[in-house]
Design a binder for these strands. Structure first.
Lengths: 218, 218
DNA sequence: GAATGTGAATTTATTCACAGCA
DNA sequence: TGCTGTGAATAAATTCACATTC
């Protein structure tokens, strides 16, 4: 049951799909559904059923042949696969409209992501409160903060021109203190050492992709 | 030179990469660089050079053997590939903190995406101004608006529970008037007719993916 | 009988490696 | 000589199809 999972054997595309399964399963859970087959789940998210089973198979055997999957169990298993059994400390850097919107986003806390601080370079913003009574810190205090409190994930929501230098600071600390993962919203490709995980979220890139497919039709 | 391009033969993964090339090339352009080889470009965005050349090859021959690519030309070609020679009309639905942040985002207008309206369901928000003097409209006026003005892309930034019904309304109009592409920020899988292009942007999914890779290390 | 779990087959994407041109 | 453009080779991902188990 608790077989050793080689995470490096998990295809890169499987990981985001697991998050999609998890969300839908939670929805089923909330509706009181307690069992689901790969076929049913596939129908709900517009995917091939074998794909779902194969994705699960990298982590173990979660279902019962002839029966299907127990929703509660599957939610727990996927959470475990994704490392969501524990909580992760997150900071947001950049308290502009995007950073602020992200800080307000309810979905983070629900998944065990704990917003421990928010930083901005502008003195007009430092000291202003966000969320439940905490205040925005000066970005100059970024390194000291990381030294006194573990920060797992940094969300970078600063202007494009400032992104790389912020990231250099985040990863410039001693390995024990430095941030290990970055979610970058600035519209630039940023670089970090290989052992720091970087993901890019890019709105205008998404719009441009839509443009491609729109243009194809007309 | 202007060979007929079969866009359906373009791999799905090539499209987002084109947007990455375009951004980097614009940066080079701004720095006054006027020529670049696939190898150099590959170094700048951490990719294989053959990948870049192959991506271009779906659309034509943009370079000169033995020399490389002229940056200005390449920018124009990629814009053409992505359908960015024209401008697209965009609406944002949902004037919460995320919708507002998106409305303020400078990158959209620069790429030829024209924000023509913003909608919200709350009477407290209707009539409030956004951007350059225009005001937020009542979401009840969504359909009339689409009938009197072409809307190419709808950005959906409403709560998860409201997303599908908004999308049903957007695609429920006559084919000539209905929105043809949707960028959904609500954290739910949404459905639309096959000829409507839907892309999903999902913050908490991105965080969960980071969690997977973080957990792998520790 | 019904649905999982998984090898095998297929499809898609990436990378190699080199002919062809400046 | 240097770099593009592209078939051929390789690698990765998806889907099929079926033995296995409940």
């Amino acid at each position: 049951m608790a077989r050793p999972v080689d995470k490096s054997a998990v295809p890169a595309v499987t990981v985001p799909r697991l998050t999609v399964y998890l969300r839908k399963l939670r929805e089923l859970q909330a509706r009181g559904v307690d069992r689901v087959s790969s076929r049913q789940l596939a129908g709900l998210i517009d995917l091939n059923a074998a794909q779902i089973r194969k994705d699960f198979s990298y982590f173990g055997e979660f279902g019962t042949r002839g029966v299907g999957y127990e929703v509660d169990r599957l939610v727990d298993e996927i959470k475990r696969c994704l490392g969501l059994e524990r909580s992760w400390n997150v900071v947001i850097i950049g308290a502009g409209s995007l950073g602020t919107a992200l800080a307000r986003y309810r979905g983070f806390a629900e998944q065990g992501f704990k917003l421990v601080a928010m930083f901005d370079a502008s003195q007009r913003k430092v000291g202003v409160s966000f969320g439940d009574g905490r205040t925005i810190r000066d970005v100059a205090d970024l390194e000291p903060f990381c030294c006194e409190q573990r920060v797992d994930i940094a969300i970078v929501a600063v202007p494009a021109h400032a992104a790389q230098s912020i990231i250099d600071r985040l990863v410039g600390l001693e390995p024990a203190q430095r941030v290990r993962a970055i979610l970058n919203f600035a519209p630039v490709k940023v670089f970090a050492p290989r052992d720091v995980i970087v993901r890019q979220v890019d709105f205008s890139s998404e719009l441009m992709s839509l443009s491609f497919y729109l243009d194809r039709e007309s």
